[in-house]
Design a protein around this nucleic acid. Structure first.
Length: 201
DNA sequence: CCACGGATTGGCT
DNA sequence: GCCAATCCGTGGA
């Protein structure tokens, strides 16, 4: 088996829906000292500021959302509900304002560090394991992603995404997005069918 | 099992 | 001043 390689800039610079679906099954990695936290991406949502009222970029560029107007391959991290961070992968060309929200990953490596970040302890119950990374803010807490990670280049060595074989269409499902109040009918949530780390069925 | 509400900052109207 | 791309605990059926 060939070693996994980082996704190249060109991967991210395509249509937001293509990138969203192809991110499923890829590996999110964050460096912590000499260790690497790793999880398989299993659930995402597409946001497109050109047509989508739920996208942070719908109303144009602001200080908060400016990273989302970068070219593809940067991390857009935002703070919400006064206590949570969520992370997005920016897609497309410069000034498009499109990104993919990471909603759930399946934890694969350094679970004890993730457990410490999430629950303040290394040994966790099966319920806590299930709740480790099955939500957008849970991913950020487990992976230690916060405000200072906004704008991180995913082609760098701190936070990046490793390639894997493209999933066949029949393993992917789509639904409406979760937790929004605008553009609620767009079926832009994509996830791996039957994965046990989804935030919802 | 499900529904509901509190937490708590800060962006934008 | 309003309210958010969330999470978690509580309380009732």
């Amino acid at each position: 088996m060939k070693p996994q390689k980082k996704l190249p800039r060109k991967f991210y610079m395509r249509d937001v829906h293509i990138v969203a679906k192809e991110l499923l099954g890829k590996f999110l990695v964050r460096r912590v000292g000499r260790k690497y936290l790793k999880g398989k991406i299993v659930e995402v949502e597409a946001y497109d500021g050109s047509v989508d009222k739920a996208a942070h970029t719908y109303g144009g560029k602001t200080k908060r959302n400016e990273i989302m107007f970068n070219e593809g391959g940067f991390l857009y991290v935002y703070f919400t509900y006064g206590m949570h961070f969520c992370s997005n992968v920016v897609t497309g060309k410069i000034n498009e304002g499109k990104a993919v929200l990471l909603r759930a990953v399946e934890p694969l490596s350094m679970l004890d560090i993730m457990a410490l970040n999430r629950f303040g302890k290394k040994n966790i119950s099966t319920l806590e394991l299930k709740n480790l990374t099955n939500g957008p803010a849970k991913i950020c807490e487990a992976f230690g992603i916060m405000r200072s990670d906004n704008g991180t280049d995913l082609l760098g060595n701190e936070i990046f995404i490793l390639n894997s074989q493209k999933l066949s269409e029949n393993k992917i499902a789509a639904s409406v997005r979760i937790g929004i109040k605008k553009s609620v009918d767009l079926p832009w949530r994509y996830y791996i069918k039957n994965n046990s780390f989804l935030s919802r069925k």
